Computed example of a mutant assay.
Amino acid sequence: MEKRKNLCAMIPETLYAQVCSEKEQLELTLSQYVERILKEHFEGGKAMANGTRTLAFKVSEELFMRIKEHLKKTGQSQKDFVITLIEQALQDAERNEEEAPEQSEEKTE
């Protein structure tokens, strides 16, 4: 096993809260989480060993708080919530793509 070194950094409280939230969702220790983030950065966002990739984006504070309130009510994790929304949107888009050629064929007849 490769020799380990300690890394310490002061970061804003809001960023710290985001780190804690995501590392808990991923069920990682802080060391595992930071190592994962740094490897993704230096290795150019390569797929993780378990075949997953990180998808990250910024939202407004208002939307973030609305999502958090919804998650409290439903008991759903942020990760599961976002994945469900993405999967639903992709299914809808794929369904629309399949229906579009059929509809244009009907119009030409």
Rank of each mutant, 00 (worst) to 15 (best):
Q18R: 15
Q18T: 13
Q18D: 15
V19I: 12
V19N: 14
C20M: 12
C20S: 14
C20L: 12
S21M: 15
S21T: 15
E22W: 10
K23M: 15
K23N: 12
L26A: 11
L26C: 12
L26S: 09
L26F: 14
E27H: 10
L28D: 01
L28C: 04
T29D: 03
T29Q: 03
T29L: 04
T29C: 05
L30W: 03
L30A: 10
S31H: 02
Q32P: 03
Q32K: 08
Y33E: 14
Y33T: 12
V34P: 06
V34W: 07
V34M: 11
E35G: 11
E35F: 12
E35H: 11
R36C: 10
R36A: 07
R36K: 10
I37P: 07
L38F: 08
K39N: 06
E40R: 03
H41V: 02
H41D: 04
H41E: 06
H41L: 03
F42P: 00
F42Y: 02
F42H: 01
F42N: 02
F42G: 03
E43N: 02
E43Q: 01
G44N: 00
G44C: 02
G45I: 02
K46D: 01
M48F: 01
M48H: 02
M48V: 00
M48P: 01
M48E: 04
A49Y: 03
N50A: 09
T52L: 10
R53H: 13
R53A: 10
R53L: 08
T54E: 11
T54Q: 13
T54P: 04
T54N: 10
T54G: 12
T54W: 09
L55M: 12
A56P: 09
F57Q: 04
F57N: 05
F57G: 08
K58P: 06
K58N: 14
K58H: 11
K58T: 12
V59H: 07
S60I: 05
E61G: 13
E61S: 15
E61Y: 06
E61H: 12
E61N: 14
E61I: 11
E62R: 05
F64R: 15
M65R: 15
M65N: 15
R66K: 13
R66E: 13
I67E: 08
I67N: 07
I67S: 07
K68L: 09
K68P: 01
K68N: 11
E69P: 03
H70L: 06
H70C: 05
H70W: 00
L71F: 03
L71S: 00
K72R: 04
K73D: 06
K73P: 00
K73A: 05
G75Y: 07
